[in-house]
Amino acid sequence: MKKEPLVQVSKLFKSYRKVQALREFSLFVKPGMIFSLLGPNGAGKTTLMKILLGIVKYDSGTVHILNLPVSSPLSRRGVRYLPEYITFPSWATPKVLMRQLERIRHESSMHDFIHRCTELDCVDLMNRPMGKMSRGQKQRVALSLVTTGQPALVLLDEPSTGLDPGGRIMVRNLIKGLASNGSTVLINSHLLGEVELVCDTAAFINKGRLIAEGGIDSLSKQTGLAFVETEQTAEMHKALENAGYSCRTEDKGVLIQLAAPSAFRKFNEIVLTTGIVFTALSLKRESLEDVFLRIMEHSNVEDDIVS
């Protein structure tokens, strides 16, 4: 059965006085996706998130969540949001904050919250005032507060802010766990390495316009860089240079620049003819960072031509 989009944004326009924040922006997000909004600072990502939550008003277009217009408070049932900047009252403990939230949303129990805190390794902070926590601890508590229970849609604005590497891994696992339980996760983050590891779909936004959207795999191109994994790096380097390739020795192998990705088949044969033992041979794809830079550069060039 075809899944109905959870988030439907169509021909959305939003301006702040003379600044056009979003221009003819359309986006559809299906349930269960881990979707990332990518773009430079001021691209309109946070504005879009806030419009989805009814926090920011838009000029024209249609915005629906679960088929309800975002102007209706009902559209926010089961929707959770973690803003990039939030300061909880310094006296409040996580338990108090959870109680305050549930007075309004009535969606999850203290037991669910304790479970989530355990998952994010902050259960020992339950009775500690927020003012006496480190930035990372506060972020773990905040993430626990917004992801407790079974939310339908979770919007996370820079969720890994202030977290140590262990914390980031926990957040990645949390996001994957939410999606596997049927939640849709919309992430706004500049940590492209993190996004690449967790998201399956991304939308690139620049100057308020949607410039590319799709699966992360389909967006990244073959780079033309090949990598031969071998313990005999010096021998492999020499043999490939003799074959006319430009090489660079790395820790566990040799990196080769091919003329084009299509030259990989011929290169494969040449590596075999060297007779040197190798454990892997791969054609490298663009990282999300490479994709981001390529798409943004292309978008800026197009804008320059138009102007």
Partner: peptide, 15 residues
């Protein structure tokens, strides 16, 4: 100022 208003407004309640 403390950034809590967007958080409260993101909950299922009217402005």
């Amino acid at each position: 100022g403390q950034g809590r208003m967007p958080f409260w407004l993101s909950l299922p309640q009217s402005r």
